[in-house]
């Protein structure tokens, strides 16, 4: 291209002005002034753009901080995370048996009372968060990973691949989650790892559906076509082009699944397919103590409330995230 540009830089405005400057000396002064004005304006705009970017990010954070649903949910969740990590140092030992003090009502010594073996219900309730907070997130992450891959492949390739995968997904979705997991757990035996894998696998179909829907709307976008015209491999297009643009629905789906995973893990423990005594797991505790419901309701009530509070907290977080993202 021409010399004028190389001397005045790539800016079309400056270049055009270069033409003007050499053309009309009378305008020179005015142009110089206008260029100066514009340069300052450009700098201002630039600074404004950078500030805007920072502000957008801060805005998102602040919108979450201002959302009461999100904050309440987050507070409860963080409370349980804290208890899961540090309750042993704070409370009495959750497995200390004291047959002399069994089934005592809540008191100063035992805030939530004691259970049939005289264990402190408060300590057990606080410690009970530990198992569920390992199983539920791990299972959710597995489900997101598998469901993400399946959804990406099905949504991106469409056609026969999609058809086969989605019919399989339909079949899996038709299976009742609890019954299937009971079957699997009775075959493979109990254990935290097996529970995680089972719940993760059973949640995979739902996640894959969400991801597939997001991929389908994204793959028709022109930047994906541009990638195909560059000869990019499908794996690259899926992972690098499409995936970063569908993180929001995946995050929301993840939090929804997390709530269900808490629920499912507790249900399995309750049915005796989860952890074994003396674990303070909530589901398990509710199951073993429910025979005393009439005479010592606190043994069941507190773990049940704890469980409910965790599920509600996760749902509140989901709700808050969804609303802020939708804005």
């Amino acid at each position: 291209m021409d010399e004028t540009r190389s001397s005045l830089g790539p800016d079309p405005d400056l270049r055009a002005e270069g033409a003007q400057l050499s053309a009309d000396p009378e305008m020179l002064e005015a142009r110089v002034d206008a260029v100066a004005t514009r340069a300052t304006v450009a700098a201002q705009v630039d600074a404004a753009a950078a500030a805007e970017q920072r502000r957008q990010r801060r805005y998102l954070a602040r919108a979450l901080l201002r959302s009461p649903t999100f904050m309440v949910g987050m507070f409860i969740l963080l409370f349980w995370v804290f208890m899961a990590l540090f309750s042993t140092g704070i409370t009495q030992n959750p497995t200390d048996v004291d047959p002399a003090a069994s089934l005592q009502a809540p008191s100063g010594a035992h805030w939530f009372g004691t259970d049939d073996l005289g264990r402190d219900v408060f300590a057990r309730t606080m410690a009970g968060a530990r198992t569920v907070l390992i199983i539920a997130p791990a299972a959710t992450i597995l489900a997101l990973l598998w469901g993400g891959i399946i959804g990406l492949v099905a949504g991106f390739w469409r056609g026969l691949t999609d058809e086969i995968i989605m019919r399989l997904v339909d079949v899996l979705l038709a299976l009742p989650i609890i019954i299937t997991s009971i079957l699997v757990l009775s075959l493979l035996g109990k254990g935290t790892a097996i529970i995680i894998v089972t719940i993760g696998a059973l949640f995979t179909p739902v996640v894959s559906r969400t991801v597939r829907a997001a991929v389908i709307s994204e793959r028709e976008r022109e930047y994906v076509m541009a990638a195909r015209l560059r000869g990019e491999r499908s794996a690259f297009v899926m992972a690098r082009e499409i995936l970063p643009n569908i993180t929001q629905p995946i995050i929301v789906e993840g939090t929804v699944r997390l709530g269900y995973a808490v629920f499912t893990a507790a249900t399995l423990s309750f049915l005796g397919f989860g952890l074994a005594p003396p674990s303070p797991d909530w589901g398990l505790t509710i199951s073993t103590q429910r025979v005393f419901l009439q005479i010592a309701p606190w043994t069941v009530l507190f773990p049940a409330v704890a469980l409910a509070s965790l599920v509600v907290a996760v749902n509140l977080i989901t709700d808050g995230l969804g609303r802020v993202f939708a804005k």
Binding site: A16, Q20, E29, A30, D33, A34, T37, R38, V41
Partner: peptide, 8 residues
């Protein structure tokens, strides 16, 4: 700022 005729 965009005017080709702009003067001070």
């Amino acid at each position: 700022a965009r005017c080709p005729m702009a003067k001070p």
